[in-house]
């Protein structure tokens, strides 16, 4: 609900930079100016970009870890309940509660649920899927898959001011500055 309203009003300033080094420097500049809701776009991953942008560690790992623990205990309890409580069948003379026999399923369910948690969690933390973004209305932005290095600042940032932000990006070496709206 909140998201939908904000997205209709979203404004993005896009600036192009010379290359990977320039993009790293500019990212540090935008970070030091206090911006948080901005992103860097490049044709390939740039090492050190996370710290240059001031991105903090994602808490995805804790989501995955929690779900993995649920998968581990859940899978064990499920099998314990099925083979030692609810429907006891003697299988090759083994005890009903044979943890050895449960472990492959425990392992598989832990991994499966971890993978789900990692996938769904990263989608949610990245606010995906979304149907469109103002960036896609820029023809110049298509170069990001080829040889373009860009920084985009979103209007949702508390420090965002159209004129000031544009000047900041230009002072950091940004060219082809565009203001994009949905």
């Amino acid at each position: 609900m909140r998201m939908a309203k904000k997205e209709t009003k979203m404004q993005v300033i896009l600036a192009q930079f010379d290359g990977a080094e320039a993009l790293l420097d500019a990212a540090r500049g935008v970070r030091d100016a206090g911006y948080r809701k901005f992103d860097c776009h490049s044709p390939y991953p740039i090492h050190g970009m996370n710290s240059a942008m001031g991105v903090t560690r994602s808490y995805l790992g804790f989501i995955v870890g929690t779900v993995a623990a649920i998968g581990l205990l859940g899978a064990f309890y499920m099998q314990y309940w099925m083979s030692a409580v609810d429907y006891k069948v003697i299988i090759s003379g083994k005890p009903f509660n044979s943890f050895q026999a449960f472990l492959p399923v425990v392992f598989a369910l832990t991994v499966l649920l971890s993978a789900f948690a990692a996938f769904i969690g990263s989608m949610m933390l990245n606010r995906l899927p979304r149907h469109n973004h103002p960036l896609f209305s820029s023809a110049n932005f298509e170069r990001v898959t080829d040889d373009g290095f860009f920084i985009s600042v979103e209007s949702g940032d508390p420090k965002y001011e159209l004129k000031k932000t544009r000047e900041l990006l230009q002072s950091l070496g940004g060219v082809n500055v565009e203001v994009l709206e949905t």
Binding site: S92, Q100, A101, L103, P104
Partner: peptide
Amino acid sequence: AFAQYFLIWYAN
């Protein structure tokens, strides 16, 4: 280590 143990435990 578990795979080695597990198969031997299962086959018994």
